[in-house]
């Protein structure tokens, strides 16, 4: 089994934390992983993406081929659309519907949502709003991971939850607890 995932968002939204959690879970489960990240200039409020590849076999390329990603997980709707050419024909898009407008020419919101909703396999929620309503504004990214969890398949939601505990352990029990709640919130919001 293999899962090729593109993680997308805007610098500072926490997609590398999502990658860290999935990576930790993969390492614990003995699943092979390659994960290309973006560092440096691109992080200053620009678009950020990470290619995350999980497989039970050898993984050669750090980058995902066009037309072969199984999932796009995005913190921002326009950023989800940016990587469509990488998605395979059965690919799933899991994205936040909360837009992040830090550019003057951001596309029309309705047209953008229309294009996303036209996809056959898309799961979309206003995760930042959800995280705020549930008093966990800093864990929006983990809510998103929860939403994506049941599609990741090669790792179970339980394995991901265990990894959340390890990744946030150094930040104290309350942070761990909040992120576990955020994860479950996302997980339970997807049928």
């Amino acid at each position: 089994m293999k899962k090729d995932i593109i993680l997308a968002g805007v610098g500072g939204q926490g997609i590398l934390t999502i990658a860290t959690i999935i990576g930790d879970a993969a390492a614990a489960a003995g699943v092979n992983l390659k994960q290309a990240e973006v560092h440096g200039m691109s992080q200053r409020g620009g678009d950020v993406q990470s290619n995350l590849r999980l497989s039970n076999d050898v993984i050669y390329s750090d980058l995902i081929k066009q037309g072969s990603a199984d999932m796009i997980i995005s913190m921002e709707p326009m950023e989800a659309l940016r990587y469509l050419p990488y998605l395979n024909d059965e690919g799933v898009v899991v994205t936040s519907s909360n837009v992040f407008k830090n550019i003057p020419n951001y596309p029309d919101g309705q047209a953008l949502m229309g294009e996303l909703e036209a996809l056959s396999r898309v799961s979309m929620l206003p995760i930042e709003d959800l995280a705020k309503q549930n008093s966990m504004p800093k864990s929006a990214n983990v809510v998103l991971l929860g939403m994506a969890a049941k599609y990741i398949e090669i790792l179970s939601p339980e394995q991901l939850r265990e990894s959340i505990k390890r990744v946030f352990a150094s930040k104290g029990e309350s942070v761990v607890e909040m992120n576990c709640q955020a994860f479950d919130l996302g997980l339970n919001s997807v049928k």
Partner: peptide, 11 residues
């Protein structure tokens, strides 16, 4: 490629 995508340069 999607239609409603524009570049988002760093700032």
């Amino acid at each position: 490629a999607a239609e409603n995508v524009v570049p988002r340069p760093p700032a």
